[in-house]
């Protein structure tokens, strides 16, 4: 049985596709009949500044749509650490980019570093860092079936981005098989 309520965040900086990742995951969960609420906070600039995209997953109707304490946190920029860290649950999973978010505070969480950004660049575009991260998250947590998120990405990818997105997702699955524990800072 899935947990009754799961809360997670994609945190980083504006323009990284954090909201897109959260929406893709939300759509995949909705496809599986789960109740979700997806929210975001961003700065009034089109690029840069702290940005987060949050997701609440519940078995029934979501009473309060905002997260209270995170089960999972994906970090694509160091700017997101400070506002997100105090809201992590004990034992929460933290997935951080090795280059963009190299230092993580200590704590009882499971802290993992991955070369998300580097992998995306090697695939051909930094812009799919968010999709690599999504692949890692899904593989490590089993939040939704691979087939569900793949269906959603197929349905929503712009022409010319589908193959790249699917490659990025698959690269994320592969990365997740060998998580690297983050060093204490």
């Amino acid at each position: 049985m899935p947990k009754s309520r799961i809360e997670l965040r994609f945190g980083g900086t504006g323009g990284q596709g954090l909201v897109l990742s959260a929406k893709l995951l939300a759509d995949a969960l909705a496809l599986e009949g789960r109740h979700v609420a997806q929210s975001q906070t961003y700065e009034p600039t089109s690029r840069g500044g702290f940005c987060n995209a949050d997701l609440v997953v519940a078995a029934g109707e979501v009473d309060y749509p905002l997260p209270v304490a995170f089960d999972h946190l994906v970090l694509l920029d160091k700017i997101a650490v400070k506002p997100s860290w105090p809201r992590l649950k004990d034992g929460a999973l933290v997935i951080a980019d090795s280059r963009l978010c190299p230092e993580l505070p200590d704590g009882s969480m499971r802290r993992c570093h991955f070369p998300l950004n580097r992998t995306a660049i090697e695939l051909g575009s930094e812009r799919v860092t968010n999709i690599v991260a999504l692949g890692v998250l899904i593989e490590m947590t089993g939040l939704c079936k691979r087939a569900s998120v793949e269906k959603v990405i197929r349905a929503s990818s712009p022409r010319g981005f589908l193959d790249l997105n699917m490659d990025a997702l698959a690269a994320g699955y592969d990365l997740a098989k060998a998580p690297v524990a983050a060093a204490a800072s």
Partner: peptide, 9 residues
């Protein structure tokens, strides 16, 4: 703004 821009099933 929260109700406006949050998505729910």
């Amino acid at each position: 703004q929260v109700i406006a821009q949050s998505s729910e099933t």
